[in-house]
């Protein structure tokens, strides 16, 4: 996954489907297939995120870069 926004969207859809599907399933209104789609998306998004070291490294480096910039601007704690 190239884009953190894609991951966010997948997680959002997964959580939305899983929660609403579970509620409807518990209410006896629909079968569990809708919730299963949501759970599947959440799991797939999680696996994709865990398997994407470059993505996390990029984020980490950007965070460190941000911290360094923070320091260089004179906001270092003494």
């Amino acid at each position: 996954m190239n884009n953190i926004r894609q991951l966010m969207f997948c997680s959002f859809v997964g959580v939305l489907f899983a929660t609403s599907g579970s509620v409807l399933w518990w209410s006896g209104l629909i079968n569990m297939s809708f919730a299963a789609v949501g759970v599947g998306l959440c799991v797939a998004a999680l696996i994709t995120w865990l398997r994407e070291p470059s993505q996390k490294n990029n984020e980490k480096s950007s965070v460190l870069g941000g911290a360094k910039a923070h320091q260089s601007m004179g906001f270092t704690q003494r």
Binding site: M1, N3, C10, V13, G14, L41, A44, T48
Partner: peptide, 12 residues
């Protein structure tokens, strides 16, 4: 390419 996103979009 963009597989997981397209799947999420295609059910959303």
């Amino acid at each position: 390419k963009n597989g997981l996103f397209i799947v999420a979009f295609s059910v959303f």
